[in-house]
């Protein structure tokens, strides 16, 4: 059992990024947040601004999920467990918002 555990552990340290990479990600996250903040006070039309913010938020989301939560390096099943309901939820949310707007009438 101990041997198994060590093996498991080794695999992990091998796969996980280094603290240096973690800090790089953190810098990117902060810079993107700062950009978002600046965009908010910029002179955009609403649709463009919404598009950019959604894109940047999605980027931050993927960085945290991919690196801090190691999904990029981990078994595909973890990604499936997480993203499958996530996609269902996004679809339901979009459908609900369409249903409550006047789009479908």
């Amino acid at each position: 059992m101990a041997a198994q555990h060590d093996l498991h552990h080794e695999e992990h340290t091998e796969k996980h990024p280094s603290p240096r990479r973690y800090i790089q990600i953190a810098v990117v996250l902060c810079v993107v947040t700062l950009i978002e903040f600046l965009i908010f006070y910029g002179n955009w039309d609403s649709a463009t601004m919404t598009g950019i913010i959604l894109l940047l938020s999605g980027l931050k989301f993927l960085l945290v999920v991919g690196y801090y939560m190691h999904l990029k390096f981990d078994n595909w099943r973890f990604s499936a467990f997480f993203f499958f309901p996530f996609i269902i939820m996004i679809s339901i949310m979009v459908a609900l918002m369409a249903l409550f707007s006047n789009l479908t009438r």
Partner: peptide, 18 residues
Amino acid sequence: GFGVWAHHMFTVGMGRWA
């Protein structure tokens, strides 16, 4: 099953597309 819920609500008037 996740994409059919509103068939319980046909009488509420969701509009013809929905």
